[in-house]
Nucleic acid binder design. Structure first.
Length: 703
DNA sequence: GAGCCTCGAGTTCG
DNA sequence: CTCGAGGCTC
């Protein structure tokens, strides 16, 4: 059989046939494995097939099949890359900008754990590349995904396979292992790559990070193969068995499996030592041979990491201590005012283009009125109280290496005729009065939907990701349609097809629009006529109601009819509807007022009604959580010995319980430690179930 | 009332 | 990514 032919003796036709055969076999094997019935092959056989497949692909990259087994999981990417949902979310890290932030980090860890004694931390350079998660099952690489938004990343398996630092098979790994780390390019390789490109007259990359990102996201793996990418492992996602008890041991284990671990990783028990190591690494920055942008500290003990857990997007047990940002001087040419969806006037600095941290910056945010004036919103000084004037020389940096901001003003170079910036009190877009509420940092246009800028921004929000997300109808198209007078409010989107049976002709005549694209736009719009309640509420763009609050409202009220009826009947500050709204955990008076107002203002309400008439709104599912405490209100009292309050609360909430501070008739369960007093007495009077700490831990299954 | 945490709304460039 | 502010806890 062809399986016996050595790979380097295969001709093209044989290779093609062999790849087809392997794809078929491995697909069967995967199906069997995932159904957990009798595996077709044992591990060693599977392993050998997978390796053979990869090796043939390596030799004949152009023969690689679209359904290649090396890219298993998820749909075959038809356009660009397929998506992969991370089994375990890829978190980001919170940042420390100075030594004091690091001390505070340590204090918050200790406070959360409650007098834990000595705590060891690891410190490692933060590589400036892009993060990658690589999944292995039974020692075989299954897929590799970029971080994406943390939940869903892009399938770059074929490209990851070409990186020498990424093993294709692992010996002695847990059955399921997701290895996480950073893909990067060394300075030397970056320079050589750019030199090669320049020679051929091609475009060069601005910095190693862009080169690494551009290389990993090549659609043709052969190109990626020719790019010298490297990989450091530092973390993991899903695991079928623990790697070790500590961060240090776990990364050593990854090293033993064949991954590169950064050699400057150390373990310390004193914060002063962490900070000393930070400065040590900083001193070596120029000679490392690759870009780093800080040092990451992690609690070493994985049991403590587990106890500390996560905030919404960041772990409590790690922090990135960033190096000071790169700075550059340039001239401020103008200050423009943009008007946002809520009417907020935001100033933007137009700069003489300047390179900062490897990219050319020509705009920078100026935040608000006070920032320009050199005051913070409480009247204190920022930037030494220097105001910013058009014509000034300003020092620019990229906050978080992303958003350009102004750090300083050089008064010695200020032109004699420079005058303080006069912040407009009238909306530059519609001429309505722009009002700054007492105690508010932003000035807002009072024009509402009369203001074209607000109307357009609201429409852009309506079609954005997370809201209606209509394929082919992005910010640009919305702007154009608004200018044409075809779409003035969200409801107009859903009558486009009908109203433009004649207009289609016009649409087709416009550049970039053929009959096909116009029809696919209309189809994409029709698809979204059925919309989940949460997305609809979010799409309305009510101030103070974002993604998360919209979901909250949706699950609280369940249906559009219930929500709409409640908001219509509700009165601000009084009545049962108001009380019900405020009883929702996470809704306060400000948000409640904002929502109710939207449903009571005539024009806005009419617009909402016109929109909803076109839609089928999908009921919001009640959050189902089958933990024994989900939906229960729990109160903790007395001294907890195995966990701190914050920890107990976070754990209970992650299981779907609501944690309250005081016992009332609504309380379902009291957890009382030693020293419990009046709360326990009250619970007894009310006949509320009471448990001690061990009873609670047993109940939630972590005794 | 202060202090945390989370969310919302703003922003840049490739 | 950051700032400001809303909401909740102590």
């Amino acid at each position: 059989m062809s399986a016996d032919i050595a790979i380097d003796q295969l001709d093209e036709a044989q290779a093609r046939a062999e790849l087809a055969r392997l794809a078929d076999l491995l697909a069967q094997a995967n199906a069997a494995y995932h159904r957990e019935d009798a595996p077709v092959f044992d591990d060693a056989e599977y392993d050998a097939l997978k390796r053979r497949n990869a090796e043939i692909e390596m030799r004949f990259p152009h023969l690689k099949r679209s359904d290649s087994p090396s890219e298993q999981v998820g749909a075959a990417p038809s356009e660009g890359f397929g998506k992969i949902t991370h089994a375990v979310r890829m978190m980001s890290l919170s940042n420390a900008f100075d030594d004091e932030d690091v001390v505070e980090f340590d204090q918050s860890v200790r406070k959360y754990l409650g007098a834990p004694g000595e705590i060891a931390y690891t410190a490692e350079p933060k590589i400036d590349g892009l993060s990658l998660s690589i999944r292995y099952e039974m020692g075989q690489i299954i897929h590799a995904a970029t971080r994406g938004d943390g939940e869903i990343g892009e399938n770059v398996t074929a490209n990851a396979l070409t990186i020498a630092d990424i093993p294709q098979t692992l010996d002695g790994a847990p059955d399921v292992l997701e290895v996480r780390g950073e893909v990067y390019m060394s300075h030397a390789d970056f320079a050589a790559l750019n030199a090669r490109h320049a020679e051929r007259g091609g475009k060069t990359f601005a910095n190693p990070r862009n080169a690494a990102a551009g290389s990993l996201r090549q659609l043709d793996p052969e190109i990626t193969h020719a790019r010298p990418l490297k990989f450091f492992a530092y973390s993991w996602g899903e695991l079928s068995a623990p790697l070790a008890d500590t961060q240090t041991a776990a990364t050593r284990r990854l090293q033993a499996l064949g991954f590169q671990i950064n050699p400057l990783t150390r373990r310390f028990t004193e914060i002063t030592d962490l900070i000393a190591h930070y400065h040590n690494i900083e001193a070596q920055r120029a000679t490392l041979g690759y870009d780093i942008d800080g040092v990451v500290y992690k609690v070493d003990d994985l049991a403590l990491q587990r106890r500390l857990g996560f905030r919404s997007t960041t772990p409590r047990w790690a922090i990135a201590h960033k190096f000071p940002a790169e700075l550059a001087w340039t001239r401020l040419e103008a200050i423009d005012i943009q008007v946002g969806r809520t009417g907020a006037l935001s100033p933007v600095a137009r700069l003489t283009p300047v390179t900062v941290g490897g990219v050319v910056v020509s705009n920078a945010t100026l935040h608000n009125e006070d920032y320009i004036a050199g005051r913070d919103s409480k009247g204190g000084e920022i930037r030494g109280g220097k105001d910013i004037r058009v014509g000034d020389w300003v020092e620019v940096y990229r906050a978080g290496d992303v958003i350009p901001k102004i750090a300083d003003v050089d008064l010695s170079k200020r032109p004699d005729d420079a005058v303080p910036f006069l912040y407009p009190t009238v909306c530059p877009e519609c001429g309505s009065e722009a009002i700054r509420e007492e105690g508010d940092a932003v000035r807002r246009c009072s024009g509402g939907l009369i203001c074209p800028a607000q109307a357009v921004e609201k429409l852009k929000h309506f079609v954005s990701r997370g809201a209606f997300d209509i394929d082919g109808l992005g910010a640009k198209q919305v702007e154009q349609f608004y200018k044409d007078g075809w779409i003035k409010e969200p409801a107009d989107i859903f009558t486009l097809r009908d109203r433009f049976s004649t207009g289609l002709q016009q649409l087709k005549n416009r550049e970039g629009w053929g009959e096909k694209s116009a029809n696919s736009l209309f189809d994409a719009i029709d698809v979204r006529k059925t919309i989940p309640l949460a997305k609809l509420i979010f799409a309305l763009g009510i101030r103070h109601v974002g993604d998360s609050s919209a979901s909250l409202l949706a699950t609280t009220y369940g249906t559009w009819d219930a929500f709409e009826a409640a908001m219509t009947e509700a009165q601000i500050g009084v009545g049962t509807q108001w009380e019900d709204l405020l009883a929702v955990d996470g809704v306060g008076a400000v948000m409640a007022t904002s929502v109710i107002t939207a449903f009571h203002q005539e024009a806005e309400r009419a617009s909402i009604d016109r929109l909803v008439a076109h839609l089928t709104v999908v009921e919001a599912a009640k959050p189902k959580n089958d933990s024994p405490v989900s939906g229960k209100t729990v109160v903790f009292t007395g001294t907890l010995e195995k966990m701190t309050r914050a920890e107990a609360k976070a754990r209970a909430e992650s299981l779907g319980a609501k944690v309250s501070g005081s016992v009332s008739a609504k309380t379902d369960l009291l957890v009382a430690g030693p020293g419990a007093g009046s709360k326990e007495k009250k619970a007894r009077e009310l006949g509320i179930e009471t448990l001690d700490e061990d009873g609670w831990l047993a109940l939630i299954g972590t005794a």
